[in-house]
Amino acid sequence: MTSVLTKKNLLILGCILLTFVLVQVLMSVGFITSFHEITLATICINIILAVSLNLVTGFTGQFSLGHAGFMSIGAYVCALIVMRFDSVAGFLVGILAAALAATIVGILIGIPTLRLKGDYLAIATLGMAEIIRVVFLNLEITNGAAGLSGIPRYTNWFWMYLFVVLTIVLINNFIRSSHGRACISIREDEIAAESMGINTTKFKVMAFAIGSFFAGIAGALYASYFYFIKPNTFGFLKSIDILVIVVLGGMGSITGSIIAAVLLALVSTFLQSFTAVRMIFYALVLVIIMIFRPQGLLGTKEITDLFKFRRKNERIE
């Protein structure tokens, strides 16, 4: 590593800060109202979820239908902690604990199930998420079906933005590391990867654990933003929602996930006024996109690939 402080990196940092300040200012002058803020929060949380699922499904090629399960673990752990220690410190400890709890469960679930392939893995992860939901439904501490209410709100624009940037940077760097390349090789051809000496199980579990880690963070942010969580919030449909973002944006494209998260949030806001046909429309879009553009909006490319100033040999997709 030569220097982290290259011109480009400083520029990026500047952009990140500028965006943050800009939104913050727009908020304080009331240009972004509290309703827009909720849309913004949904987008941020969905970006974290989608990017982390993209690592598992898009880059490593392991089809998971249980991402909402890890999100729920994060949400419950953080909620329980922040409800007892009602402070910013409690919130941060909550997020950390949430991420770690989700990771541990992710590893425990990942080791047996990741031996499965394709559709079977999808159903197994779906089953795992259902089991997690049933457990939350029956535990005393999670208050069963009634859920946890009155969770203090600490999630704000600052924390959301921070974690979105962290998620993107960390996952992006992971994919570009040798570990990440190993993951991509598993997606391309598991048998070939294995014969090249890659410990496929190890990397699959690693991707799964990292994905769960960030899903846990997303859950924690969710819990502390929306005041209220219950087991049914994190059902099968939530997992599907996240998967749809990933697939719509393109499996193996981080920018794709980001665009899709924003697009879907805006579409969903727009469709709120058409209650009866909303789900029908959603379903139709899903089918039509799969038929006409099964690789998603961006496929495995990043939107930045389109820019002219790209250097050669930087990408591997």
């Binding site: 089809f63 089918v287 038929i291």
Partner: peptide, 28 residues
Amino acid sequence: KPLRNSTRIAALITAIGVSLFLEYVMMF
């Protein structure tokens, strides 16, 4: 049928889409 030669995941998502479609058309 249009998806017979595309990836498994695309087919599975289509199946989920069809499932949602049938449910909500019926509900409508």
